[in-house]
Design a protein around this nucleic acid. Structure first.
Length: 223
DNA sequence: AGTAAGATCCAC
DNA sequence: TGGATCTTACTT
């Protein structure tokens, strides 16, 4: 297994587009209600916010500025932004970029490298499907909205019965990029190749176009 | 106040 | 392909 070291908050203060590929191969360990699960991250997506970086991000929860929902994205890097997707799934982002600007890296998939028993018990799935997709990853990690939104993965400070810690690996030699999954409109096209994954890894989730993204992609190549 | 859509997943 | 399930943001 590739060596990892504790993540430093300062190295997450870079913009999401820069941090996202660096999170591939990283290890997220969560201990919730006594059960510990460790994930090796294999797929991520970068999200900016209004005024973050050179490119605006129309696909971000923070595209309209600070709100109650996305408050964590504007805070200190190294915390986890946990949001509720489609009223069902708790999805996990690593907050990045400097405090006061919005930014996050959505953890879309991972390989369970420790605590498989707890992961299976939590999800009813097994093997590569345990954390293949952001909803599944959140479920296996045991992090839930709104209980664990804002938990600090640098200090390991407990929050509502959970502890999260993040360890980084050396940068990978080979990283694949492409459009983000399920993101509507032009933000879900090759104009925003903000999804990063480990090529060939079996835990990477299948690609799906977002609402109107395929049509927007045609427009981009058609003119 | 009402409604449509959403960084998803699963069963049909 | 549609339903689950609930929050948010935009429209009356």
């Amino acid at each position: 297994m590739r060596a990892t070291r504790p993540a430093d908050r300062s190295e997450l203060a870079a913009l999401p587009l820069e941090v996202a590929p660096r999170l591939l191969g990283a290890e997220l360990r969560t201990t919730v209600d006594g059960d510990s699960v460790a994930l090796r991250i294999t797929e991520v997506e970068a999200y900016h916010g209004r005024g973050t970086g050179d490119l605006p991000d129309p696909g971000s929860h923070a595209r309209m500025g600070p709100t109650a929902r996305n408050a964590t994205m504007w805070g200190e890097p190294g915390h986890l932004y946990v949001y509720l997707s489609h009223g069902i799934h708790s999805c996990v982002n690593v907050v990045c970029g400097p405090s006061g600007t919005a930014g996050g890296v959505l953890l879309r998939a991972g390989e369970v490298i420790d605590g498989a028993d707890a992961a299976i018990a939590r999800s009813g799935r097994s093997g590569r499907d345990l954390a293949r997709g952001p909803g599944r990853l959140g479920q296996v990690a045991g992090l839930r909205h709104p209980l664990h939104d804002g938990i600090d993965a640098i200090t390991g400070q407990p929050l509502n019965g959970a502890v999260a810690t993040l360890r980084l690996a050396d940068p990978l030699e080979e990283v694949a990029t492409g459009p983000r999954v399920g993101v509507a409109g032009v933000a879900g096209t090759h104009a925003f190749p903000w999804r990063f994954w480990i090529p060939g890894d079996p835990t990477v989730s299948p690609f799906r176009w977002g609402r109107g993204a395929a049509a927007a992609a045609l427009d981009l190549t058609g003119d």
